[in-house]
Design a protein around this nucleic acid. Structure first.
Length: 548
RNA sequence: UGCCCGAUGGUGUAACGGUAGCACAGCAGACUCUGGAUCUGUUAGUCUAGGUUCAAAUCCUAGUCGGGCAACCA
């Protein structure tokens, strides 16, 4: 018996599992599975499911299987299986030896279907697809029986074998479960179990021309793997009676399907179709564009997997359709990065500073790598008589409560000392082109209310920075079906810029994460080259300064 | 419309018949070599109407609102 960690939220699925463990329903075993269809890239909505599936197994000393749910060869491709595995691993989960394909069970599914036929619980139906809706009926009225419903088991077996043998064209026949044409649940009105598809399978090759439907295949996949708790999203709730029917009538391991609400996030879209549309129309730069909620995009943006895991835990698990504020994700990202990201200085919008008292000026200073983590140590930062500071950190006529630099005032230069402004240089148009000032060491008796970051003019290096903002301007871009979600795209979601970086940043390798002090968290992009890093802004720092 | 599911501050959630709590966001303050972090305080909530009960967010009934289902998709 293992008590859940105290900070974990006791959601209803944890309670179901705890209860099953208490009663010994599955002998204390917890076996789960994450079953993506390999027809697209994973996004943060999948991360919620992954964290749940793997998390419940981990917490209960169980196992979680990674299973490609590849029952429809016309939509799926091996292209996706690699990225799915990479994404799950990146998120921090390990399926051990339990990597499976639904298509590996095709033979058993076929045998089980023959069993259903022999039991008089399935039949080959020749009603054309577009005509079936007349038989199925509408919710308020019962359907009517297929004219093929009462074929003999022998005839059904023969026909089903010939379907497999390829004797019939696509759509000519299907195998149906014989359940209840009057059921108020449409899924129970003799659902299709198998359809004919003369399409080679990306994993199974050309062995098959009949393929099982999800509703038939999924419970079998789960049962064969002895999955105890089969978590899926809410829209499968009405499928559960059919899930149970298959397990019961095939006499299989009693896997249990449990549904929970999918994750929705503000200022983005989560549907595969819409994400694909953004990629195909080149409104973003690909599946791993850092503005996308795909795991590839989040990774490239610099989001640590631990932040995503923490976020998924804090969002919780319920059966209520919710819309989570991205601010919660951003909080989890900052929280993780604050503890782990080394600090560095870079100036986005430079203003030259000329130090006038150059005698005894240090050639370098030591910077603290991470005030939250003493073990991160220090580094050397070159110093000199000319610096660049952020243009916003100087105001010739400061607004009220402005703590930074202005004529006659002083600020602390991060890691270095104090700067007192003694003069301002203008160009003929009256713009500020440089600030002049005097430097004092850190132990000087100067009182200031602000510390600003800087880079040394002689040693700072220009680096490319990509400043990302929300992809959409509105919290629910796809809320209104009558308005194209693309019309809500934020035109300023990407701003390319050049920053002046302290020299240590030139060593950054793709994936390295930093806090650029007082600006935000940045991660080196795969586009980086040796000595020419490219930085993606993961998220800004919170900024509580607001002009009065 | 028939069936299924759901409803707690702005948002995400907890409370399992007994003081409606936590987090995010917001606001205010303290502290600070990041106007970051940290700390403190604070605004704000049980969909409606009946019923059961000493006591209801919780149980029952009806309604309202939201979501799902009517592919040979998953």
């Amino acid at each position: 018996m293992n008590a859940p960690a105290p900070e974990k939220n006791m959601h209803f699925i944890r309670e179901i599992i705890a209860e099953d463990n208490r009663t010994g329903k599955y002998g204390g075993q917890v076996v789960t599975r994450f079953p993506p269809e390999p027809n697209g890239y994973l996004h943060i909505g999948h991360a919620k499911a992954i964290c749940l599936d793997f998390g419940m197994a981990l917490e209960n000393n169980g196992e979680c299987h990674l299973r490609m749910d590849d029952t429809n060869p016309v939509k799926e491709d091996v292209e996706y299986t690699d990225s799915i595995q990479a994404d799950v691993r990146w998120l921090g989960f390990d399926w051990g030896p339990h990597y499976y394909h639904a298509s590996d069970y095709f033979e058993q599914m076929y045998e089980l279907a023959c069993g259903l036929i022999r039991d008089g619980k399935a039949y080959v139906c020749e009603v054309p697809g577009d005509e079936w809706k007349h038989y199925r009926g509408i919710p308020t009225e019962p359907g009517k029986a297929s004219p093929f419903r009462n074929r003999s088991a022998a005839e059904n077996l023969d026909l089903f074998q010939r379907m497999r043998a390829g004797e019939f064209p696509d759509g000519a026949k299907v195998l149906r479960a014989k359940i209840d044409m009057a059921s108020p649940n449409l899924h129970m009105r003799d659902p299709v179990l198998y359809r004919i598809l003369h399409t080679p399978h990306p994993h199974a090759g050309d062995k098959w021309c009949i393929y099982p439907m999800y509703d038939y295949a999924h419970p079998i996949e789960d049962a064969l793997e002895k999955i105890t708790h089969s978590m899926c999203t809410l829209e499968f709730e009405v499928h559960r009676p059919l899930y149970d029917w298959v397990i019961q009538n095939c006499r299989l391991f009693p896997s249990r399907q449990i549904e929970f609400a999918r994750l929705e996030l503000t200022y983005t879209v989560m549907s595969k179709r819409k994400l694909l549309e953004l990629v195909q129309r080149k409104l973003v730069k690909g599946w791993d564009d850092p503005r996308l909620p795909t795991l590839g995009g989040l990774r490239r943006r610099g989001v640590p997997p631990a932040a995503i895991r923490q976020f998924c835990e804090r969002v919780g698990i319920t059966k209520y359709d919710s819309l989570t504020d991205v601010a919660l994700l951003e909080h989890c990202i900052r929280d993780e990065l604050n503890r782990t990201a080394p600090r560095a200085m870079a100036v986005l919008n430079p203003l030259r500073v000329v130090i006038e008292n150059t005698d005894g000026l240090p050639a370098a200073v030591r910077g603290v790598n991470n005030p939250e983590d003493p073990a991160a140590g220090t580094r050397e930062i070159p110093f000199g008589p000319e610096l660049f500071i952020e243009r916003e950190d100087f105001a010739e006529t400061p607004p009220p409560k402005y703590f930074r630099l202005s004529p006659g005032k002083s600020v602390r230069l991060r890691n270095a000392g104090f700067l007192t402004c003694t003069g301002v240089d203008h160009d003929p148009a009256g713009n500020v082109v440089a600030v002049r000032g005097t430097f004092a060491p850190m132990d000087a008796p100067v009182k200031v209310k602000a510390t600003i970051h800087w880079v040394p003019a002689h040693a700072a290096k220009p680096v490319e920075v990509r400043l990302y903002d929300r992809l959409f301007k509105v919290p629910e871009p796809d809320a209104d079906k009558d308005v194209d979600f693309k019309s809500h795209l934020n035109p300023d979601s990407l701003h390319m810029a050049t920053a002046l970086a302290e020299p240590s940043l030139l060593d950054a390798r793709p994936g390295d994460r930093f806090q650029f002090e007082r600006i935000g968290y940045f991660a080196a992009d795969p586009d980086s080259r040796p000595s020419a890093p490219v930085f993606n802004r993961t998220v800004t720092l919170k900024d509580s300064w607001k002009p009065a």
